[in-house]
Design a protein around this nucleic acid. Structure first.
Lengths: 202, 202
DNA sequence: CCTCCATGTTTACAGGAGAAACTTATGGGA
DNA sequence: TCCCATAAGTTTCTCCTGTAAACATGGAGG
């Protein structure tokens, strides 16, 4: 049959193909209401095939979220690696990179922090999220050591920072920072409020 | 027929009954994966009846979220109304009340801020959320006037505070504040970090 | 060369969403 | 007073989804 090349019985890397399709759909409509059958259909495969690679739709979503955390981590690290003068500047760059990522991939970002990406039942996802979180911890530690940040319980600072950045990202995604007539650059302004509490010099 | 009293053809206030059932289910399993049919079933009504009151499941969810915002607002106001010495203390009380509400109604709280409660397509929901947000704005304004808070663009402070409190609430809900071995009282500690940036006196 | 077994496919079924058509009370004119 | 328009429920129907089970295929190892 001439279709052998077009569609060999064994796909080769269906798992990856399904992920790519789902990622594309997620990016296209910025939500994850697509059905597993639709993903299979677009990947050109029978509707039951995905079950050989993912226990259920949730497992696929968690894998997407895991990839998202890896990408976010890379994005943040890239933003920090440019030669920046101070820890404060580095923090600002990292936070803004995170928020930019959220804005550019709002569907994926929301999925990453949604209850559909339950980290308590997926160690791999949990680890990926933790690794990204650790970037923040290391930045805070360095900042405390070089005298930029106040020497307070590191976890309180981490919780405050993480909460702040994530909260801003979510507000930014849902347009709440524009609609309410916040100033021209609400994100750095809000981050400055936090950094004023974080940094030694007022 | 003897059933007239048990189940009159017209329910009386089915809309309210559906909301109550859904609210109960939301509280019971802290998620909103229930089906509309299940809600109808438990309310003792045919599966199509809810459509007379809600366009679809989303409409019901948004109404639940709206109620949640009203309740949250009342909770916060109650927490602030106790005689507190300073604006800083009042802010702390309001923030902690918000986080306590989130912990005590994690399903509802997550729904309120999820994409399933889309504020851009539901003016009533949007207004309810805005009203609750306004409590924070007023508190910040008062704090700036009485000299407690720095006189910075009010919206930057509001965005920072809102993001912070909401972020902490989400972290608290998903147990991320305990698992990562944060100190004994991570929430006030993190809020102190923010308040240090907010307040005039360091 | 032949035979497993991972990877696909087909078939089957229990629900769910929602539309349409039908039924029942109820209250506001004629 | 009667009567019917209408709001509020119900029944029925169609399409779709998730998921399980049984079957097919072909590539890699003995």
């Amino acid at each position: 049959m001439s279709e052998t090349k077009d569609r060999p019985y064994h796909h080769g890397d269906l798992r990856r193909a399904l992920i790519d399709t789902a990622l594309a759909m997620l990016a296209a409509d910025q939500n994850w209401t697509f059905t597993l059958r639709e993903v299979a259909r677009r990947t050109g495969v029978s509707h039951a095939a995905p079950y050989k690679h993912f226990r259920d739709k949730g497992a696929l979503l968690r894998e997407l979220a895991r990839i998202g955390f890896v990408q976010l981590g890379e994005t943040i690290i890239a933003a920090m690696s440019s030669n920046l003068p101070s820890s404060r500047a580095q923090f600002m760059a990292a936070a803004q990179a995170c928020i930019a990522f959220a804005l550019g991939n709002s569907g994926l970002y929301r999925l990453m922090f949604s209850s559909d990406a339950d980290k308590t039942i997926d160690p791999q996802l949990h680890d990926a999220a933790m690794n990204t979180f650790r970037i923040l911890l290391q930045l805070l530690e360095k900042g405390q050591q070089d005298g930029s940040f106040r020497k307070v319980a590191i976890n309180a600072q981490a919780a405050a920072s993480w909460a702040q950045v994530h909260g801003l990202a979510m507000l930014a995604i849902s347009n709440q920072l524009l609609e309410e007539k916040v100033g021209p650059a609400p994100v750095p302004a809000a981050l400055d409020v936090l950094l004023d509490g974080l940094c030694c010099q007022k």
